[in-house]
């Protein structure tokens, strides 16, 4: 099968210090798969997403290429073929009603009707459509962001840390939402520091350390003592989980 999204030797470099924050990252996503990207905070996970969408701060630049269906991505792809669910729920437009924000991305007949269906599917009341983002709880806002991902025709969803600081019940709910996204045929790059969530959701896991991808492993390799894992850092990450050895760097 040919990959739907290919990241080819992507580097992100600081303009002044020439420091490489992301070094030659190469990854490809097959249609319909969920690829989890895990790693410590500051390892460059979010930069990768920002790099794909050309959302980098001005003091950084990128080298390398990103392909969508084997052709280099263009600004037109952003929001149409690729959609980004950012880390912060503050990404919603604070001055626009929720319903309108969803309707805006729907490219079908009867967008209003479609929007109401989506709200229902995600367990939100239809009154939600006439609310402003500040009137939503954190969980509701997150569901609205997922609704927007559903509403677009985009085949590829890149989600940056959608589960920070959530309790187990809410976390399960978010996992279910993303499983539904996958079942609807979308390809997902799921960025998280929460290893457990990554393992529950992803088919393959890419492990990032200090700006480099050290290993891409099947989800099933993360079992037992981690004998099937190749890189020492990946093994360490696996063994550090409380349900495993709970051993740190020392």
């Amino acid at each position: 099968m040919k990959p739907i999204l290919t990241i080819d030797q992507l580097s992100i470099v600081h303009r002044v210090s020439e420091q490489r924050l992301l070094n030659q990252v190469t990854l490809s996503l097959q249609p319909g798969e969920v690829l989890g990207l895990v790693g410590a905070s500051g390892s460059g996970k979010s930069l990768l997403a920002q790099g794909i969408f050309h959302l980098l701060p001005t003091n950084l630049y990128r080298t390398g290429e990103i392909y969508y269906n084997k052709r280099p991505i263009t600004t037109h792809d952003r929001g149409t073929n690729l959609v980004y669910i950012p880390q912060s729920v503050e990404a919603l437009d604070p001055l626009m009603k929720v319903g309108k924000q969803i309707v805006e991305v729907i490219r079908e007949m009867n967008p209003e009707q479609k929007m109401l269906e989506l709200l229902q599917r995600l367990g939100l009341q239809k009154e939600m459509a006439s609310k402003y983002p500040f009137q939503l709880s954190g969980g509701e806002a997150r569901r609205v962001l997922v609704a927007i991902a559903f509403a677009t025709q985009a085949e590829v969803v890149i989600a940056d840390e959608p589960t920070p600081g959530l309790d187990e019940a809410t976390k399960r709910e978010v996992i279910t939402l993303f499983q539904e996204l996958q079942q609807s045929g979308k390809t997902i790059l799921f960025i998280t520091h929460d290893f457990d969530v990554g393992l529950q959701l992803a088919d393959r896991i890419a492990v990032m350390n200090q700006g480099e991808i050290v290993e891409v492993a099947d989800q099933t390799s993360f079992s037992g003592d981690g004998d099937q894992l190749q890189h020492p850092y990946t093994k360490k990450l696996w063994q550090a989980l409380p349900q495993n050895d709970f051993t740190g760097s020392s």
Binding site: S41, F246, G248
Partner: peptide
């Protein structure tokens, strides 16, 4: 209060150690 929730497993294990 959730002092290692935002951290990766290795750092979490280090801090609690």
């Amino acid at each position: 209060d959730e002092i290692t929730t935002m951290l990766d497993p290795i750092t979490q294990a280090d801090i609690w150690d």
